[in-house]
């Protein structure tokens, strides 16, 4: 069975939700610890949301220097699929696995809403079960989710198709080009601010036109990784 590691940092909040999403997708969830140097041979890694180290210094900054992250960086460089959600996305930018950075929302407030995203790149390890242009709804909850990058970096991201997800209808945090998530050139590392792990099971997801809380659009992110690992 495919084994997907979920790293718990001091201050992680969504690690158990991410583990559950991994199990719903049909893989074994392996709990990994920030202070270890051991990835326990997992096939893919999820860096979950939360407020690691109390968001001290900068969001994700101290976590990006934790012992486990050294292993995550070298695994990512070997092509192992790595997904960073919210705080995990912030860690991936701090670790220079993804370009750009995240700053405080332009309106200054924490925001929590069911957010529509457009899948812009469906050929990454974490998006292959979607179609390009598909619109999905998953929860967003952050205070520092404003995506920024230099003009040259933005041009490169857009030109090379490295924008993975874009906000639709509402830009909830002032992200440049309404970027919600990005990927690296190889497509194995993806980071996004919204939370796919909160939209995997009917009854607990966002509302849809069909029924309350029936949205499960996030599940395909996890099944994508499983499919991409089986395809290798």
């Amino acid at each position: 069975m495919t084994r997907v590691g979920v790293v718990t940092f001091p201050g992680s909040l969504d690690d158990r939700d991410a583990q559950r999403a991994v199990r719903f997708a049909g893989a074994e969830a392996v709990a990994l610890w920030h202070g270890d140097h051991d990835l326990q041979g997992v096939d893919a890694v999820v860096l979950p949301g939360g407020f690691s180290y109390g968001d001290y210094l900068r969001c994700g900054a101290i976590a990006s220097h934790s012992p486990i992250m050294r292993e995550v960086v070298s695994a990512a460089e070997r092509g192992v699929p790595v997904l960073g959600i919210c705080n995990g996305f912030q860690m991936l930018t701090e670790a220079h696995l993804l370009p750009g950075g995240l700053i405080r929302n332009d309106h200054g407030s924490f925001i929590c809403r069911d957010q529509v995203l457009r899948v812009e790149n469906a050929s990454t390890a974490w998006t292959s079960a979607y179609e390009v242009g598909q619109e999905i709804t998953i929860p967003l909850k952050n205070g520092e989710g404003g995506y920024i990058a230099s003009a040259e970096t933005l041009e490169r991201l857009e030109g090379e198709g490295l924008v993975a997800f874009r906000y639709v209808d509402v830009n909830p945090n002032g992200s440049l080009n309404a970027i919600a998530g990005v990927t690296n050139e190889r497509g194995n590392v993806v980071g996004l601010m919204p939370h796919p792990e909160h939209a995997i099971e009917a009854g607990f997801g966002p509302d849809t036109k069909v029924a309350m809380r029936s949205g499960v659009d996030g599940l395909a992110m996890f099944t994508s990784a499983l499919q991409s690992l089986l395809a290798v």
Partner: peptide
């Protein structure tokens, strides 16, 4: 390397 992030 640590105290600042040159991106932001």
């Amino acid at each position: 390397d640590l105290l600042s992030n040159s991106v932001i």
